[in-house]
């Protein structure tokens, strides 16, 4: 559902190549990735996600409140937009011909997603935690059963 919404946002702006959604706490993979990017570009963004996070941290030092920040980097053939709100970071990649104003306008549509993304993330965390707890309880049970068996065997021998 969210992916559909992001795709519709992406298609609404001419020259917009991709929208990536990252969680700063989980640096490895994007939560959502919409649009087409070349392998080089994908690798470049993946490798430099730490760079984005550190630049957002530095920009945070300039602002008094922890409100949303935007960083725009203009290259000869690309435009890179980074919208940050809380722990969620939206990265928009566009061509140099794309309308900068309409991409900045996407921010108003992307920001309401933050709450939903955070709740789904915490839900995922809760389920993974529950899963890991179940695993540990199973291991503990097995361990306990083995211990009991060995104890009863030693008793029988006696």
């Amino acid at each position: 559902m969210l992916k559909k919404y992001l795709t519709s946002l992406l298609e609404s702006v001419n020259g917009c190549s991709a929208i990536l959604v990252y969680d700063t706490n989980k640096e490895s993979n994007p939560i959502f990735r919409v649009g087409e990017l070349s392998e080089n570009e994908t690798n470049a963004i993946k490798q430099n996600i730490g760079v984005f996070n550190s630049s957002i941290d530095r920009a945070e030092k300039l602002s008094k409140t922890g409100s949303s920040k935007t960083i725009m980097a203009n290259y000869n053939n690309h435009q890179l937009f980074i919208f940050s709100k809380g722990t969620i970071v939206f990265i928009v990649v566009a061509t140099s011909e794309a309308n900068t104003g309409s991409i900045l306008n996407l921010k108003t549509y992307l920001e309401p997603l933050v709450g939903e993304l955070l709740t789904t993330n915490t839900l995922n965390d809760a389920t993974s935690l529950a899963g890991s707890l179940q695993n540990t309880s199973m291991i503990a049970n097995n361990f306990y059963n083995n211990q009991q068996q060995s104890f009863s065997q030693t008793n029988i021998r006696k």
Binding site: A44, K69, M72, N74, Y75, N76, N77
Partner: peptide
């Protein structure tokens, strides 16, 4: 990485 040249950066 982008094989491109950076013109300017704007921080808002």
């Amino acid at each position: 990485a982008f094989a491109d040249i950076l013109n300017y950066v704007i921080i808002d």
